[in-house]
């Protein structure tokens, strides 16, 4: 297991380098010189040259990349163009606010999706299953931002239950529904597959009550792929945060990101891209470890 962990950690290195390369490349898609954006155009050329040298902009591009990479490794992504604050401080303030929204949504999703998928699979073809299947399709097809607007329309404008902004309930519901649909379909499918396995018949033939067959023997197996898929849905969860936070004016990293895009605050944008990618990778790594922990076949193979 330790060796497996070490190997997985080692695999992260090229991944992170790749991510930084793409981030840097995207940053240099930006038209013109970053200095042009917020330095007084009437400033003396020698002054401009000094600033450019200061920022390393007079260096060849690969030198700039290594400079940026070196700083990024120390979590220094430069300073925001708009506030002048270090990017890492700006993000550091906003990230917890985003996690405050994402963590409960993640938990809520798990608490709902697993029983829903399991019951749907066990009662395959029942009205309950049909309803769950239809709603999951609808949930996958609904644009997240529009769902947010509709919830706002219903609960804030019509019913006056929650304020449209500044309250966690509506963004939480929006985010949860967004991730619920796909996962429920997945959970149902994996449960259905397990229920068709021979060892379920064995469990029944042993005289285990159906409750034990389903919640012990089947569910333990059906959760194995769920762990992986949870890791894979992390990018969507982050992606959702950008839009949901914007609609509900939730002051997290997502809203900061969208604002920065409109203000062309490239250091912030790049910092957020890097930080979210890093969190996603860590999430995937945790999912892989979780996978190895719940599946003895992998656990033993990997420990060899």
């Amino acid at each position: 297991m330790r060796k497996y962990l070490f190997r997985r950690l080692l695999q992260l290195v090229p991944l992170l380098i790749g991510i930084s390369l793409i981030s840097f490349f995207v940053m240099h898609l930006a038209p013109g010189d970053p200095t042009a954006l917020f330095i007084d155009p009437n400033v003396k050329p020698e002054e401009l040259a000094r600033v450019r040298a200061n920022w390393g902009l007079d260096q060849p591009i690969y030198v700039q990349y290594f400079l940026w990479l070196k700083n990024a490794c120390l979590l220094d992504f430069g300073r925001s163009y708009t506030t002048g604050q270090p990017v890492i401080n700006e993000i550091g303030q906003r990230l917890p606010v985003t996690l405050l929204l994402m963590a409960p949504s993640f938990l809520l999703t798990l608490l709902i999706t697993i029983p829903l998928g399991v019951i749907s699979a066990v009662r395959k073809g029942s009205w309950f299953d049909n309803a769950v299947t239809f709603l999951s399709f609808a949930g996958m097809a609904i644009p997240t931002f529009w769902l947010g607007l509709m919830l706002m329309l219903l609960f804030s404008v019509k019913l006056h239950w929650f304020p449209a902004v500044g309250n966690i309930i509506l963004p939480l519901i929006t985010m949860t529904i967004g991730s619920l649909a796909g996962l429920t379909r997945y959970q149902r499918a994996s449960m259905l597959e397990v229920l068709n396995q021979d060892f379920i018949r064995t469990a029944r033939a042993k005289g285990l009550p159906e409750r034990v067959v389903i919640f012990k023997h089947a569910l333990r197996n059906a959760l194995i792929p769920t762990v992986t898929i949870l890791g894979l849905t992390l990018p969507d969860l982050f992606g959702g945060a950008f839009i949901i936070e914007t609609i509900f004016a939730w002051p997290g990293m997502g809203r900061l990101g969208v604002q920065s895009i409109f203000q062309r605050d490239y250091p912030i944008i790049m910092g957020i891209v890097m930080i979210s990618a890093l969190l996603i990778i860590i999430g995937n790594l945790l999912a892989d470890i979780g996978y190895a922990l719940v599946d003895p076949r992998i656990r033993y193979e990997k420990s060899k």
């Binding site: 064995t202 033939a205 042993k206 333990r220 599946d295």
Partner: peptide, 20 residues
């Protein structure tokens, strides 16, 4: 089931639960 009448199956590779 399993107490007074038991059953064994064709495929021992798939008839045991892999996670226990």
């Amino acid at each position: 089931r399993g107490a007074r009448i038991s059953m064994i199956f064709q495929d021992p590779f798939t008839s045991l639960n892999p996670v226990f």
